[in-house]
Design a protein around this nucleic acid. Structure first.
Lengths: 259, 259
DNA sequence: GGAACGCGTTCAGTATACGGAACGCGTTCA
DNA sequence: TGAACGCGTTCCGTATACTGAACGCGTTCC
């Protein structure tokens, strides 16, 4: 799930601001409480600077301490901004009825996600009502190269752009995950041709996903997918899901044409 | 939904860190895109300082700009940390089975929330399966004084502590909302006595909620509630819900005794 | 058409936040 | 038992990030 850290270069940055968000991302990446020394060795900031920074964030409620006051973790205040991103997003708002309809038509789990660096971020989900269903949550990040959503989005970039986004070797999540960037790029050509992507248990064993990009900007930023346990899949059902996805894509294209 | 800004006083703070989170909270509070000048007049920072800060946060993906690059809004990266707070929380994890069971027993909307200043923050919800149901989302904030959750939590504080947390005049959300702090404090005495709180359409017209605090620390930090449209309420059903809540409280007390 | 505005951007002097080193304190060994 | 460690905390000189003023550019208004 390599979090990209874009543009370290390029002009002077406000140091404490960089550290503030790096610190928040550190805590977010490792739930639970952490000592100052632990954070210090991980991030490499001087102890005293880190101490002041932590004290400030604790006072603001963005970082919390345990009863002893010496172990730190992410605070309640951080919740606020994350959900606001979703609430204010025009694409999420415009996609709502289409997602509902897609969920009804397929009765399977539906995702709307956005490409951020080499990851996709879930913006909205509709849970399958079946007992057997994938676990997901808004805000979750997954590698683009192992998901149908990510592959559908990467396919709207040129091969060279994809080479800039992804490293040469890709981290495997299952035995089916593409681990070679160039092999993945060949697959992207196929995706462009037929208009949708498929994830054959590349992210989760037992789960097949179908993804399609929303073309309101190029390269595309958002995509929708439908995830189905292989146990429930038949050729006929697969065709049905593909049709529903294409129809959803057309509706979404209309709903987002003003963006 | 007065966001508390605790402890402005007390020791030197890292200025850029304070501004960073204030800026994020600003964007979170006003979804959509905003010009530099607009933010500048609202927050009162010098233009040039704000400019540098924004540029830094844009590079890091925590703030996004529109196509022109001159209008700013909250970025994808902010999503990450918010959801992490929930994922890492021991109370949320420990409460999961109890919430599921409570949702099944009552078939109504269930909330787990935490007190933060004068607000409550939703940490987990179980949606009612009925067609008529309240709209909620994890991360949402509501005033403590107008919710059963908030009142159940405030009741575990002493009257003087409540006077420190709440202002004298309370903002009304419906015609039933308590607007006088001292009147609310009288109600809190009643809540302590009977062990649970009731919100009689004080937050949303047509909705009655029952709340109960989880006593794993004093004063309590978290509470659970059950929200029911008045149209579906009968005396017998109300009794049933109260019983289920008390049972849930006992289960949660057990599940959180190690915290 | 030109002057005045509004807005984003740059610059340089200076207030200030950073960071290396020292301190205090509790814990762990020999 | 006392010396050595680990960890959080404080201190002070200095590197540096902040800010007020100036700039450039597009738009508005007379």
């Amino acid at each position: 799930m390599a979090l990209p850290t874009p543009a370290d270069a390029g002009g002077s940055q406000v140091k404490s601001a960089v550290r503030t968000v790096e610190l928040l991302e550190y805590f977010a990446g490792r739930p639970g409480m952490h000592s100052l020394a632990e954070v210090q060795t991980s991030l490499g900031y001087p102890k005293s600077s880190l101490y002041m920074l932590l004290r400030t964030l604790v006072e603001l409620g963005w970082v919390e301490t345990d009863a002893t006051g010496t172990r730190y973790g992410i605070g309640v205040r951080a919740l606020l901004v994350g959900t606001a991103y979703i609430d204010g997003d025009e694409v999420v708002a415009a996609a709502r009825p289409t997602l509902d309809r897609l969920a009804e038509e397929t009765t399977e789990t539906i995702h709307l996600a956005r490409l951020d660096g080499a990851d996709v971020v879930y913006l909205a989900t509709r849970q399958s009502q079946h007992y057997l269903r994938p676990f997901t949550r808004v805000g979750r990040r997954l590698p683009a190269h192992s998901t149908s959503l990510g592959k559908a989005l990467l396919a709207t970039h040129s091969d060279d752009e994809v080479r800039k986004i992804l490293p040469e070797r890709l981290a495997p999540l299952t035995e089916h995950t593409f681990t070679d960037r160039e092999e993945l790029i060949e697959e992207l050509a196929l995706i462009r041709e037929r208009g949708y992507s498929v994830d054959h248990e590349e992210n989760t064993v037992g789960l097949r996903c179908f993804g399609i990009a929303i073309p309101y900007r190029t390269p595309a930023r958002d995509a929708v997918s439908c995830s189905v346990p292989v146990a429930r899949l038949t050729p006929g059902r697969e065709q049905q899901i593909r049709d529903a996805l294409f129809e959803a894509r057309d509706r979404l294209t209309l709903a987002t044409r003003h963006l």
